[in-house]
Write a protein that binds this DNA or RNA. Sequence first.
RNA 1: GCAGUAUGGCGGCUUGUCGCUCGUUAACGUUGUGGUUGCGAGAGGAAAGUCCGGGCAACACAGAGCGUCACAUUUCUUAACGGGAAGCUGCGGGUGACCGUAGGGUUAAGGUGACAGAAAAGAACCGCCGCAAUCGCGGUAAGGGUGAAAAGGUGGGGUAAGAGCCCACCGGGCACUGUGGUGACAUAGCGCGCCGCACCACCUGUGAGUUGCAAGUUCAUGUAUACCGGCAUCUAAGGGCUGCUCGUCCAUUGCCGGGGGGUAGAACGCUAUACCGACGCAGCAAUGCGCCGGACAGAUAAAUGACAAGCACCUGUCAUUCGACAGGCACAUAACCCGGCUUAUAGCCAUACUGCAUUC
RNA 2: GGUCCUGUAGCUCAGCUGGAUAGAGCAACAGCCUUCUAAGCUGUGGGCCCUGGGUUCGAAUCCCAGCAGGAUCA
Length: 137
Amino acid sequence: MDHKLKKDEKLCSRTAVNLLFDQGKSLMAFPLRAAYRLRPRGEHPVQFLISIPKKRIRRAVMRVTLRRRVREAYRLTRRELLMPGLDQSGWGVDIAFVYLDKAPAPYHVIHEKMTSLLQRIATAAEQQPPVNDPEPQ
RNA sequence: GCAGUAUGGCGGCUUGUCGCUCGUUAACGUUGUGGUUGCGAGAGGAAAGUCCGGGCAACACAGAGCGUCACAUUUCUUAACGGGAAGCUGCGGGUGACCGUAGGGUUAAGGUGACAGAAAAGAACCGCCGCAAUCGCGGUAAGGGUGAAAAGGUGGGGUAAGAGCCCACCGGGCACUGUGGUGACAUAGCGCGCCGCACCACCUGUGAGUUGCAAGUUCAUGUAUACCGGCAUCUAAGGGCUGCUCGUCCAUUGCCGGGGGGUAGAACGCUAUACCGACGCAGCAAUGCGCCGGACAGAUAAAUGACAAGCACCUGUCAUUCGACAGGCACAUAACCCGGCUUAUAGCCAUACUGCAUUC
RNA sequence: GGUCCUGUAGCUCAGCUGGAUAGAGCAACAGCCUUCUAAGCUGUGGGCCCUGGGUUCGAAUCCCAGCAGGAUCA
């Protein structure tokens, strides 16, 4: 199975991020919150970002560690859980993962919650009608 | 052996599975770029705080005066510093090894010193003495009391009473001479009764243009009418040039020409130098010189990892020979780059030294 | 990443430059007024002046270090 995760799959455009938080829907699986927005497929079917608020996790070392844990959980699970649902419906998606707890969580907890989130996003994508209008934006 | 002081150093390692960033043409592939595989490299001693000093970049800079800020014992060190090394003197802490802290001048004039106290800088409230005999006038810093601070200390002489007023010893200051030291200074002699607190302000010497890689350069997108130049008009407010003054330059409106604001994005800047390691020499040391070897992060919603197992180390319990079990394994994540300082830090090592206990 | 600002009563702020009494408004509490409440009037309490050192006789204030919170720069 291919678990690679390149830089292209990161969400960097500021306008896309603003759209995501304005119009996107939100799912909770404490300590994670996922904001996602279904969109027509472009060059990359999925783009994501991870945010660890400085207000909640003070130490820079812990923020970096948590970002790596979240990314690792996403990298290992998305191919099996997220992509089938998206490929079936033909939608693309932007996702933002926000860490909510004030204490750092161990990896197995994050992995479990990530599994739950991705499954719910995949089912949401399946329930959308397939893409008819290829008009971008 | 226990407890400590100073200086210097270390700051985990290995394996497996799955990954990330940069470089590389070695292979595959491609019109080419991108790509895949391989190979190489990939956080710290503080990367932190942003407290100093530089490099680098842009802008500014006719000149004169005033002001502001920082530093201030000596000798050295450095690209530079408010840093560092080794000393000197005073004060304080520790049984001790040792540690902390302060250090230009202030002769003259000026300001402040709450409350208390007579008085807070050339002092008379009580007291003492003389004249006078109620008051009052004069002399006096030995005694009292106040205060953070009250005008060298002890003894003797002296006097109306007292006082460095005079003398002896002690403490301090200044000048001269000798000796030691590169020097601050130390020490010996001799002379001068010279003996009035602290801070501010002031003076002297040295240094400082401003802003910072979000500096700055280029490209694509793109168009408010900012800004600039010329000509005509205007001469007052105001603005720029260094914080202020002098001085100097600009100015308002119209026309013509140039030009490209905001927003979002990409590339360069961007990593090879006051670099790192070994050895030798000079020096008490900081450091310098010579020589040999080496190449060591460049991300940008921000890579350098996640998970599992084992080892090493530390603590506790059991055992007191091997060991077993449980827990812990710090602080802290580069963002243009260096030199320092400060702060955080589990645990460990080396060298020198100190105190206590014990054995020979 | 750079530059700068602010921490004082439960809340919002003075006082710091120029050192010697810690204050104002709102809130709280008690009393008066009112049949009762609000408003109004009178009074009371409440502070490790963010933390730790230093200078000084004396520090909220000056100096140094740290900890929080905030603003700004293409």
